[in-house]
Amino acid sequence: MTTTALPAPPRERRRGHRSHRSHYPLWFYLPAGAVYGVLFIVPTVASFYFAFTRWNMSGTEFIGLENFALFFSEPYLFQGLVNTFVYGLLTSGLKVVLGMLLAVFLTSQIIARGYLRSVVFFPTLVSTVGVGITFTVLLDPGDGLVNQALAAVGIAGPGWLTDPDLALISVAFVDVWKGVGLATLIYIAGVVAIPQEYFEAAEVDGASGFQRLRHITLPLLRPATATVIVLSLIGGLRSFDLIWAMTQGGPGFTSDVVASVIFKQYQAGFWGLSSAGNVVLFLLVAALMVPLYWKLNRKEVER
């Protein structure tokens, strides 16, 4: 056994010497690459072609930038673009703030900590459509529970989902209700990872509770914040299920986002326009995510 020519340079093995390569065959990439390539990469690349065509039942016809011109000139399409932006920023902003507050609270010395953590987290696992339908009923302007409760204390509740100015924001709030558990979980892991000695040293130096939070906890939670922002932006910008279950983009098209516009145009048979919507969403996501990646340490983003 020991006489086998074993390539064993003890430290510098990481580069993958020739003799090692055969144990880690490249064809291991093949099955995953085939599925991913055919069903994700090819359609994504193809969308850049179809976006420049008038594509429907009768075929495709190259029309240049016409679809994009429509997207930026027609209010029912452009509103979706603006809303996607608002929705993404609003939900991820709220998840950062609420998630951090909840995590600091849920790692402090309180009773029923385990119960509270579970309760905050479990909406994350529940069907989005189910949550959407439930809240549509709860937020009904007339006999919904929320407005009845508000009426009981003398406040006339607004038409959460029927007021054009409010519908998108209401859906965003429900999104935060459902998703804040994940943000909290990531922040809790971040808080727990902070060495206890820092707090003890600060306490010896006479730092108050608030000072410890401000100067130790918050700065050391930056990696967790990066993760939460990236994850909630990725989810928020492509959000479809909740909006579709609650308002279907209504009233009118005031709560449409790009993802719901894509679906509506697909249903209407305007496949080229729908693909252009995908390209617009792609560019919007890239425009937000690429600078984010540059700014945040890449390591913190990867799982």
């Binding site: 991913y36 069903l39 994504t44 969308s47 990725i234 894509i262 693909s275 995908n278 969403l281 996501v285």
Partner: peptide, 20 residues
């Protein structure tokens, strides 16, 4: 980059139907 792309880029729906 390909792996991260899969995490970030929203899938292109109609072209995917076309491929399927």
């Amino acid at each position: 980059a390909l792996v991260l792309a899969g995490l970030i880029i929203p899938p292109a729906v109609v072209p995917t139907i076309w491929v399927l």
